[in-house]
């Protein structure tokens, strides 16, 4: 019950993200590569800031620095193949 879903798009739970952090992930992209959190249709719009907060326990000076977050990539929204 306490193992709450953090990434809704990819169904990634808190325990999986904590595991990724124990394995050495130090920024959002590292967690993403290990767990798929942030790879869903919303491209991390929902989960990315939460993952960052989990990485920064206790909260650190680094804050939401560009290096700590994943980079936006195009297409930034779900797009029909026909429009590409």
């Amino acid at each position: 019950m306490n193992d709450v879903i953090i990434c809704r798009c990819e169904g990634v739970r808190l325990s999986e993200i904590e595991q990724a952090i124990r394995e050495g992930a130090s920024a959002v992209p590292g967690v993403k590569k290990r767990t798929r959190a942030g790879m869903g249709p919303c491209q991390g719009r929902v989960c990315q800031r939460v993952v960052l907060q989990l990485l920064q326990q206790p909260p650190s000076e680094a804050g939401e620095s560009p290096d700590a977050l994943q980079r936006s990539r195009s297409p930034v929204r779900p797009t029909l193949l026909g429009d590409l």
């Binding site: 491209q43 804050g63 560009p66 977050l69 980079r71 936006s72 930034v76």
Partner: peptide, 20 residues
Amino acid sequence: TDLAEIAGCPMVEVEELGGL
């Protein structure tokens, strides 16, 4: 900020403004 990022605009973190 997604479009600003992919346009290549430099991003800065200003917590008082709401983040990046």
